[in-house]
Design a protein around this nucleic acid. Structure first.
Lengths: 162, 162
DNA sequence: ATAGATGCAAATATTTTGCCGCCAG
DNA sequence: CTGGCGGCAAAATATTTGCATCTAT
């Protein structure tokens, strides 16, 4: 039996699927969490980022809006968002050092496919991945709250080039 | 159509599937890599570890055989093994800090299913996971060399307890 | 008014590098 | 013998904590 082909959500740069401006702010507000000036700045950046953000880049971007916003606040805000499952933390197979990357947690889980040669990261959705998760929930009597698949290898262009 | 049920490779502690004593040493030897006293110690520990090792634990265990074996040597040996794809590096969803865990790379990829409450990590093999990888290779014209799936949530016993 | 957030400095954790003497092959 | 390897110290990178002050509600 054949499955639906994998849907390539983005090629190269990341498309922010869940990009509804103000969504993160609304989610936190709904939960009665204090919305400070610093948090609003960070949330906006995270929501609209066209790529996967690391702490360094997030801080840089934040500094354009407020030069005094502290790196610690970035860490603390990311922790907050992780706790509420509003962002996912990735390491993209440590392609570039041991830092982590963050992205808004969209409506559907996707797989990260990273080329070890050119560094491009594709996001792919697949029905098989959803089935895999359901299978594990069923067979292991497990309730899944986080699922992360990161795949490394060589993309079509890098393969043809070599 | 139904798929083969997920095969639970281990429950709780890790079963070292690829545990053939001397396999790592043989693999390195076959590649003409120098086998030092320190490497032999580390390889043996990695091969026979009943659980996922981090650098700290690996160093501790190594110190029982040689108290002078340095932490840097542990990092360098793990790098070597990673480069030759003889071990996999996991972060187990940062269940316990931002350290990494290492395991011998067995004949078949498996999924790590980690309970966020009790911390137990199960290894699960699934035909669906293999199909997912093949699908990505086909649909994205991508050559996969590393594949890592880490799933977090709550296991049966922790769910019934709450 | 006040619980909770931020900034700053310092501590901690994790990984990498430079260099020199040593040892496996 | 000798080129790669390990030990040591130090640097680099990444993240967390303590505390005084400030601010969103």
């Amino acid at each position: 039996m054949a499955s639906t082909p994998a849907r390539r959500v983005s090629s190269g740069e990341r498309i922010n699927i869940a990009a509804e401006p103000g969504r993160l702010e609304a989610e936190l507000g709904r939960r009665g969490i204090r919305l400070t000036r610093q948090r609003r700045i960070l949330l906006r950046i995270i929501e609209t980022a066209p790529e996967h953000l690391n702490v360094e880049v997030l801080l840089e971007k934040a500094h354009r809006a407020d030069a005094r916003l502290n790196r610690v606040t970035v860490y603390r805000t990311l922790d907050l968002l992780k706790r509420y499952r509003l962002v996912d933390e990735l390491d993209l197979l440590h392609l570039r050092g041991h830092q982590h990357f963050y992205e808004t947690h969209g409506p559907r889980d996707h797989i990260h496919v990273a080329c070890l040669a050119c560094g491009k990261v594709r996001e792919v959705e697949s029905e098989l991945f959803d089935r895999l998760k359901r299978q594990i929930e069923r067979d292991c009597h497990f309730e899944i709250t986080v699922a992360r698949t990161e795949i490394g290898g060589y993309c079509a262009s890098c393969r043809s080039r070599s």
